[in-house]
């Protein structure tokens, strides 16, 4: 054990030493000029267009109270539902920090509140503070995300400013349902993660 530890430390030191010796003269850290990337476009429309492009479905609601009825229409056979959104009463399975993620393997549907949406790529940002068990948005058969029109951003530069002050644990941008084209470049939706993604824009 001592042998391995010493070897470990030696590699760290030797790597750092080699980098120091071999690196070029210091080059400046570039500034990002956001002006270059500004566009005057309709964020919601752009978001919906991109979400459709990546295989997701967007539904605009006037009020979040209409959501449950829409979900029932879209997923009539879903019975094992985890809802992490207080405005939805469809949840049939409750989870907490102690839940074993393996027990979620046959979940039909998860409903999660998205923190923000990115117009340029149809992605929604969610963190484990929104869904408690990290495996949930991936292991569920279908996924519903809810996002407010007030939380819509043009591009990723704005988004990183918006999430800069979060408590960093685990977060993920989700853009569409899970997919693959590994067999002859034929697009198949539903690889390992959710088979479908519906985003409610409120």
């Amino acid at each position: 054990m001592i042998g391995i530890k010493t070897e470990k430390r030696m590699s760290r030191e030797s790597i750092l030493k080699a980098v120091k010796k071999n690196k070029p003269e210091s080059l400046p850290l570039p500034e990002i000029d956001l002006g270059i990337f500004e566009e005057n476009i309709n964020l919601v429309e752009t978001f919906i267009g991109n979400l459709n492009f990546v295989g997701g479905r967007a539904i605009q609601l006037n009020n979040i109270t209409e959501m449950d009825a829409e979900i029932k229409k879209l997923y009539p056979n879903a019975s094992k539902i985890v809802s992490c959104v207080k405005e939805s009463a469809l949840g049939t399975i409750s989870i907490d920090k102690e839940t074993d993620p393996h027990s979620l393997e046959d979940i039909d549907l998860a409903i999660i509140k998205g923190e923000l949406a990115v117009a340029e790529n149809g992605a929604i940002w969610v963190t484990d503070q929104d869904f408690t068990i990290r495996a949930l948005p991936f292991i569920t058969n279908d996924l519903v995300l809810v996002v407010s029109t007030n939380d819509m951003y043009l591009h990723m530069h704005h988004v990183y400013e918006a999430i800069a002050k979060r408590d960093r644990t685990f977060g993920v941008f989700i853009s569409g349902p899970s997919k693959t084209a590994d067999i002859e470049q034929c697009l198949v939706v539903g690889a390992h993660g959710a088979m479908s993604l519906t985003v409610f824009i409120v």
């Binding site: 990002i32 991109n50 492009f53 990546v54 990115v118 340029e120 790529n121 149809g122 992605a123 991936f138 591009h155 990723m156 530069h157 988004v159 990183y160 400013e161 800069a164 960093r168 644990t169 685990f170 977060g171 993920v172 941008f173 989700i174 853009s175 569409g176 349902p177 899970s178 997919k179 084209a181 993660g193």
Partner: peptide, 29 residues
């Protein structure tokens, strides 16, 4: 972290023409 804005905008588009990969997972703890 803000430099991810630059790289995540480039990666998916350059790789497959997607505006971003389906999942971009940020692991911290």
């Amino acid at each position: 972290e803000k430099h991810l804005g630059v790289f995540l905008r480039l990666l998916g588009r350059s790789a497959t023409g997607q505006p971003i990969t389906t999942y971009s997972s940020h692991f911290n703890k």
